[in-house]
Amino acid sequence: MKIMIVGASRGLGRALVDGLLGDGHTLIGVSRQRPGSLDAGLGAQLQWIAADLARPVEAVEQIAREAPAGLDAVIYNLGVWEEKAFSDEYAFLDDADEAIVDMVNTNITATILLLKRLVPRLLGSSKPQLILTGSTSGLRQSGRPEVTFSASKFALNGIADALRESFREQGLAVTALQLGYLNTQDGLSVPLADATARGEGELIPVHDVLTIVRALLSLSNVSFVRELVLPAIRDERF
């Protein structure tokens, strides 16, 4: 399959790149910069587009110019959060207006503008798929106080719902993947048993997310997973 991964340079995105490359897929990675640690010998199997989606209009046009004309799947993994998010120091009233605007532009505006250009490239596939990486913070009664990040992930659910209805007749499968807290420190090179030990059961290893994505990509073209919630088993919010 020919797959674009947006937000691919580190953490979960990098794990998806490494895992799906190993499965033999052709990948197009998108991030602000191409990681220096990538194997330069991958040739035609890996293309990289360096674009900063914090500047949505400019970045989207660049990606549209450099992306292939046809794609089988897009994994949209982009998302930024408040400087003090997920800590006891977070306080909504302390967030700078400029930082809030930047988050909305990156997490919502860039997503809508880029998908407007990428969806037509998916529709030519025999099994077009779009996987949107959301967050349990975007679910109702999530138990999290981060206002702008939660709002942007809630908006992602609305984007997914609307795209399903807009392109249902063309067979576009849209999955919202709602993830809990991730262990992004341990990549695929770390054994799963070691990765699960970090966080004492409260952090999801990226290995598990890769397993889910592989399953989604392997479905037939007559079924899809509408939404999947993946929290850690010891996450008391769920």
Rank of each mutant, 00 (worst) to 15 (best):
G29Q: 07
G41N: 14
T196C: 05
D102N: 13
I204N: 07
G171K: 08
N157H: 14
R234N: 14
A176H: 08
P35T: 06
T111N: 13
E169G: 01
Q33N: 15
S150W: 05
P35Y: 03
E227H: 06
T106Q: 05
Q47F: 00
G143L: 02
L192A: 03
E58Q: 14
I100G: 02
H25C: 09
M103I: 10
V119H: 11
D52A: 07
N107H: 07
V104W: 12
V147Q: 09
R226C: 09
R10S: 15
L78P: 00
T175E: 08
V80C: 04
D194P: 00
L114V: 06
P120C: 09
A59T: 10
D95Y: 00
G138S: 05
L27T: 04
Q47P: 00
E200V: 05
D23W: 00
V206D: 11
N221C: 05
L16A: 04
G199K: 02
G41W: 11
T136H: 00
A54D: 13
I49E: 04
P128I: 04
S9Q: 05
E61I: 01
V147E: 11
S87E: 00
E89F: 13
G143E: 04
V190S: 06
A67Y: 00
Q141T: 02
F149Y: 15
F238Y: 13
A197F: 00
D52Y: 08
S150N: 15
N183V: 03
K153I: 12
A151P: 06
R65F: 02
E227N: 12
